[in-house]
């Protein structure tokens, strides 16, 4: 696994953060973040620091707020209290700041959300052409590169409706990568897939992790967490309950809620 060379400058914060890894600077900082849906307190006092190239898996029972949490990181959901700083830009109500964060953060959704009226290639080129103002030829060349990386260059001129679920999800990953993002967010990328298609998507994600991409994945794929993650975060009831490297997390969970959750999902 190639870890990228990053700047040597260290802020005092990186050194003081719990599982500090020397030589890496923060790319995401979440401080004391709260979110409410009306009276319902969905996210409670979340704190998280993610360094360049770090791979984080977020798991937890359904309704624990893990999807809402990563959707806050590119402001698909608003937080009401606390701070979220992504790549030195704080997420506020300012649309320019929101747009500049979204340009650097790619996202892959549970239901793919490919644009059905555009071909696979057009899906991949849309944002580079309109947002990055890349010449069409260059955008298409980049898109083909990424489509090759996710192993479906031959489907470039088909429409999303003509592809299988696994193929669609791989296109969605390629589409996000075409913006050359610094961070990739995965919101349960394999939950809507048939079992035989899960592997092809996970393979692409593992390959991506190997290339040094900063990744935040909400997933129930514990095998993926074990092989790829630097840290596993367990959420329940809108709180971060436990945060540990995968080996410690799976073999020696500290909190009773984590133990109960792991027992339930690892039973079979």
């Amino acid at each position: 696994m190639g870890k990228p060379m990053t700047e040597q400058t260290q802020t005092p914060e990186t050194q003081s953060s719990p599982s500090s890894d020397v030589g890496k600077s923060d790319i995401i900082r979440v401080e004391g973040m709260h979110k409410w849906y009306g009276d319902f307190h969905v996210l409670q006092d979340l704190n998280l620091t993610v360094r360049h190239g770090e791979r984080i898996v977020i798991c937890g029972p359904s309704g624990s707020g893990k999807s809402t949490f990563i959707r806050c990181i590119n402001r698909l959901e608003e937080h009401q209290q606390g701070k979220i700083i992504v790549d030195d830009v704080e997420l506020t109500d300012d649309v320019r700041q929101i747009d500049s964060v979204r340009r650097e953060v790619g996202m892959v959704f549970q239901h793919f959300n490919l644009f059905p009226h555009l071909t696979v290639l057009e899906n991949c080129c849309l944002s580079p052409i309109w947002v990055r103002k890349t010449p069409r030829k260059e955008a298409e060349a980049t898109a083909m590169e990424y489509l090759e990386r996710v192993k479906i260059p031959d489907q470039a001129n088909k429409f999303p409706g003509q592809l299988s679920g696994g193929q669609q999800q791989r296109v969605a990953i390629a589409r996000a990568l075409c913006m050359k993002p610094k961070i990739m967010l995965f919101d349960e990328p394999t939950s809507a897939l048939d079992p035989e298609m899960i592997k092809e998507v996970l393979d692409v994600m593992i390959e991506l992790a190997g290339s040094g991409m900063t990744m935040l994945c909400v997933t129930h794929e514990m095998g993926f967490a074990k092989t790829v993650a630097d840290r596993v975060i367990f959420m329940d009831g809108g709180e971060i309950v436990e945060e540990a490297p995968p080996h410690d997390f799976f073999t020696n969970p500290q909190e009773p809620r984590t133990q109960k959750f792991l027992k339930q999902i690892l039973q079979h």
Binding site: V105, F109, N113, L114, A172
Partner: peptide, 14 residues
Amino acid sequence: SKGQTEASKALGLP
């Protein structure tokens, strides 16, 4: 669907 708008926004399209 709302997912279409979200995907578009997530790609940085205003």
